[in-house]
């Protein structure tokens, strides 16, 4: 390979990676301005960093590798960045949690799988690789979430779940306005979200139209989880069981007689054929043994 060819390839590679990076970064890596300055309400310390490390190793290391070890998954395109690098550390806490919540490029969202508290712990761990980092704490007071009263009800006429968010402040009960409400139905491996998250209206209400065909248990019961997120009041969630699902009681998949099932559930035709064959053989055997006995007992 001549130097010229190599040079051309290099240029081509540069253009290619520029295009790829540009297309990914321009779309996904930019947090909205109001998210950019978001800060953690958890104070980063050795304990949060240690918890964060465990979470990181379980959820992030398979692609990003260990910080500073240059062992990211090379088969991905682009190669996931080393999170101890200057480029990564130059992002604000707000930008980092935005990426964790929403994903970026190939990276999935961790909003559901981790949740905000664990995400902050991961960030706490990552900031340990940056000597110049000084944490700015959010002004949010976690104690305020205790004041929240989150009530959900089912409206049969419109087939929807109505959520009412209020707070018991010193000066009386007030409606929480503009809080983000999400409604989930609990499933075996995770929560299934009903519609999209909505903001509460002026009276602290949010209305979610509920699917009519969601399977419940035998009685049609569904466990509904309502989550509230508000800048002042933080995260609150309540669960309640409603009988609004389709009653579902499917039999086990191995109930029927089948060629692949166990002996006691063998198809009748096979039991019949097998038994017939065996019985005919036993009859023949009896006949022959009896003949042999006859020969043995025969007198001259």
């Amino acid at each position: 390979m001549t130097t010229n060819q190599k040079y051309n390839q290099f240029i081509a590679f540069l253009i290619f990676s520029f295009v790829i990076n540009a297309s990914l970064s321009s779309r996904n890596w930019k947090a909205p301005d109001d998210q950019k300055d978001k800060n953690s309400y958890i104070k980063f310390d050795a304990s949060t960093a240690a918890q964060g490390e465990a979470i990181y190793n379980a959820n992030c290391a398979s692609c990003h590798g260990n910080p500073g070890k240059n062992n990211a998954l090379k088969s991905l395109n682009p190669i996931p960045p080393d999170l101890s690098s200057t480029a990564s550390q130059s992002l604000t806490d707000g930008e980092l949690i935005y990426i964790l919540n929403n994903g970026a490029g190939l990276m999935p969202s961790f909003k559901n799988s981790l949740g905000e508290e664990k995400e902050w712990m991961v960030i706490s761990y990552l900031r340990g690789f940056n000597k110049n980092y000084i944490q700015e704490l959010s002004k949010f007071d976690p104690a305020k979430s205790k004041l929240v009263k989150l009530v959900s009800s089912f409206d049969k006429a419109s087939n929807s779940i109505i959520v009412n968010a209020t707070a018991d402040e010193k000066n009386g009960k007030i409606a929480i306005v503009g809080a983000e409400i999400s409604v989930f139905v609990k499933r075996y491996f995770g929560n299934f979200q009903i519609e999209k998250a909505l903001k509460t209206d002026a009276s602290g209400l949010a209305k979610f139209s509920f699917p009519t065909d969601l399977p419940g248990n035998k009685n049609g019961d569904l466990e509904v989880l309502v989550k509230l997120y508000d800048e002042n009041y933080g995260e609150v969630q309540v669960t309640k069981t409603y009988s609004i699902g389709v009653p579902t009681d499917k039999p086990g998949l191995n109930e029927d007689r089948a060629i692949w099932n166990t002996l006691v559930k063998a198809p009748l035709w096979i039991i019949g054929l097998y038994a017939t064959g065996l019985i005919s053989f036993l009859l023949l055997l009896a006949f022959l043994l009896n003949n042999l006995r006859g020969i043995f007992n025969s007198k001259v």
Binding site: F287, L288, N291, L292, G294, I295, S298, K299
Partner: peptide, 20 residues
């Protein structure tokens, strides 16, 4: 088996081999 070539024995053999 006490074979002595009686007609009965011969018949029994014939029946048996026939069935077999």
């Amino acid at each position: 088996l006490n074979w002595s070539g009686t007609t009965e024995q011969k018949n029994l053999i014939k029946k048996s081999t026939g069935a077999l």
